[in-house]
Every structure is written in C-alpha cells, then in structure tokens.
Amino acid sequence: MASDIKLAEGPPSYDGPGFQATSFDKIIGLARANSLWPLPFATSCCGIEFMATMAARYDIARFGSERISFSPRQADMLLVAGTIAKKMAPVVKQVYLQMAEPRWVIAIGACASSGGIFDTYSVLQGIDRVIPVDVYVPGCPPRPEQILEAVMQVQELAHNESLRRRNSDEYQKLLASYSIQ
C-alpha cells in the first residue's frame, strides 16, 4: 500500500539519496513549498469544498496556491477531491503520469482516500491503489480548514525534500510498485 511514502532521508548508504541536505536544497525546498500549484481533480462534493477553499473566506492564495493549473504539466500537487469510480481510475493515473516532477498527491475526503460510504462494486476503494498518495484528508467532505491543513502538510514535505529524492532508487521503487515507469 501507499504507506511506504516517506521522506527520502532514509538510512544513509553510499549510494542513497543525499547524506545531508545542503542549504541549496533548503532554499529550493522553500521555494517549492511556497509555490505549489494545484491541479484540482474535483469529481464531486469535495470539489465544492475545494472551491470554497479557493474563495474569499479561506483563500488558498495565501499559500501561493491559487494559480490552479488544469494542465497537469504545470501542476505541482494533484488534489483528488471526490469519489473515484473504477471507470475513472485510469484517468486519475493518466493525469498523474502527465504531471512533471516533483509532484505530490492529496486525497481529499473519505471517498478519494478509502471509498468512504461507497463500498460498492463501482467505486475504487481509495486512490492509493493506482497512484501514490502523500497526504490523506479525512472528512466527507473535509472542511476547507482541513484542506488548507493538507496543503500545509505538502508544504512541509516539499520543504524537507532533497532535490535528489525524485531520482533515488527508493522513489523509483515506489513508482514501480504502482507500475509507473
């Protein structure tokens, strides 16, 4: 399962990713963290809450994330908001594949994270069956606060990530476990 998504600073080994994070890594991490462009993959109820997060009251712009890029090439984080049916699963994967590295995935709400109440023949029981997920947000739908919380969590991940993580063996192995090249 997707539980093996961790920050790349694993046990130090001679060919592992970075022994120490350089200050350059830190700066780029900071830049990335403050400029996370979301790709809202909004399918249902949670999509409306994402809109509310974009709107005046909660204002995701404060995190530098209001520039929503519907083109996957330009997006940094994929926000899967809403139920993903089995019919839709290949599309989610396709969008994930089209995204340029570094990319993060947030599963917003019970349906995207685990299927929620829709334990049915037609619904995918959590998107982590097709793509690796970085942050899960509980709630059905989660409140905008919780979505912001998730964005902050991704900021944290981005900030602490080494520049080499995306080239590391560990990461490749993770992708391979989802049969993504």
Partner: peptide, 21 residues
C-alpha cells in the same frame, strides 16, 4: 458514469434513516 456510486444498490442494504447520507 465516471462517478457511478450505486446509490440505489446501497439503498437496498441500508435502513431508512441511513439513506439520508
């Protein structure tokens, strides 16, 4: 049908008050 969630099938398994969800 991209988010077909089988409401009607679920409804056949749930007591009346749970169908509100």
């Amino acid at each position: 049908g991209y988010i077909h969630r089988a409401f009607e099938k679920i409804a056949e398994r749930r007591p009346f008050y749970q169908i509100t969800t």
